[in-house]
Amino acid sequence: MTLLHSRRQKEIRKRLEGMRPRLYRVAFAWTHNRSLAEDLTQDTLVKALQAARQLRELESLDAWLFRIMSNCRRDHFRNQVSTENVDNYDLVDERTPETRSSEQQLIQKVRDSVEALPETHRQTLTLVDIEGFSYMETASILEIPVGTVMSRLSRARARLRKLLATQHVDVRGNDSNARLRRIK
């Protein structure tokens, strides 16, 4: 009987599908584009299914999946140079002044600032802050040394701080538009 029918393979398939929202969230943080994030997520899951036999320990599935996604992103970038398709971009800003509350404005400012970061810094920052990966795991996903993770993270946060300041976001509560000190 092939591995297909094994309990382990079933478990992997189940967990792969369960990972879709997390992959999509990070893919969106990397690309800030729904279509690209969808394609990146789907491409990652297809490749993961094809390579599932290579996975030795289920415990490492999360980092393994994000490593596949990082490689997919790299490949996509490489191909993007000559085949950029405007259909991949959101050309219409669906936001209107009426629908944008101060919280939504704040979220958009943060996302704009993250989007302005260099790609490598953005990937490192989002893996640590959004997904909560450790430095070791992030290094493994991006296939870089831990020291590089630390330096990228430090520079990314310093840059983000400046970008947020230019967007008039003050996390100490001086921003009249942003109400950060809310208690649920």
Binding site: R25, L160, L164, R172, L180
Partner: peptide, 13 residues
């Protein structure tokens, strides 16, 4: 605070 802010900005995409 910035770390929390970043996390909050992508809680719902």
């Amino acid at each position: 605070a910035n770390k929390e802010l970043l996390r909050a900005a992508y809680r719902q995409v």
